[in-house]
Computed example of a mutant assay.
Amino acid sequence: MTPSPATAAVRVRRAELSDLDDLVALEQATFDHDQISRAQYRRHLDSDTARVLVASANHRRFLGTALVFFRKGSRVARLYSIASLPEARGKGVGTALIEAVEAATRQRRGHAVRLEVRTDNHSAVRLYERLGYQRIGPVLKGFYEDGSDAYRFEKSLA
């Protein structure tokens, strides 16, 4: 019997073209709105200014993904999207992905990571706060496709 994600070490790696079907499937299973399309993922996989990461355990299908953008001339990375399968939540997948985003940002000489999160996504807000992210600026009214508001968070990596 293979260990569950709760007992297995979560590994994060850069996504590859062969992950495209799984990336799209996870996106569709996780988000009702604001989904990243297959074409967008395809473009991001080859981009110098984006990094798509996937998390897995026990060499099985991956459990989560993160997409981070690096804007030329800026030392602030933007965590654009993070998702994990429902059965993987609370098992360290989000933490592992965020730590990998921070490592990738440092590798590119970035000094901070910013992100937006729905105001009603209490578990994600708690995760970001636990990992040292702080709310910045006002609530972003109607930020998401469905009209939901967002908080903006930032963490200094200096």
Rank of each mutant, 00 (worst) to 15 (best):
R60N: 09
R114H: 12
T49M: 05
N121A: 06
G147T: 08
I136E: 13
G92C: 03
R75N: 10
V139R: 10
E102R: 00
R61I: 08
Q28Y: 03
V76I: 14
R114Y: 10
S84P: 04
R71E: 11
T95W: 01
T105A: 03
A29N: 11
F70A: 07
R118L: 02
L85A: 08
R13Y: 01
L157E: 00
A57Q: 08
Q28R: 11
L85N: 06
V139W: 07
E154C: 08
R38I: 03
A158Y: 09
L97A: 03
A100S: 14
Q40G: 10
F69L: 15
L20M: 13
Q40V: 08
Q107M: 07
A9Y: 05
D34I: 00
F70Q: 12
A77C: 03
D149E: 08
L157Y: 00
L140G: 02
Y133I: 12
D149G: 13
R43E: 06
P3R: 15
L20K: 09
G94S: 07
F69P: 12
S37G: 02
T30R: 00
S148I: 03
T65I: 07
E102H: 02
A9K: 11
R118P: 00
E16K: 07
E154M: 09
R118T: 00
Y144P: 02
E87R: 15
L67D: 01
Y144R: 03
R51I: 01
D120W: 06
G64Y: 00
V93T: 02
A104Q: 13
S148A: 15
A158C: 15
L140K: 05
A103S: 13
V125D: 00
A29H: 07
D48L: 15
E154V: 14
L157A: 02
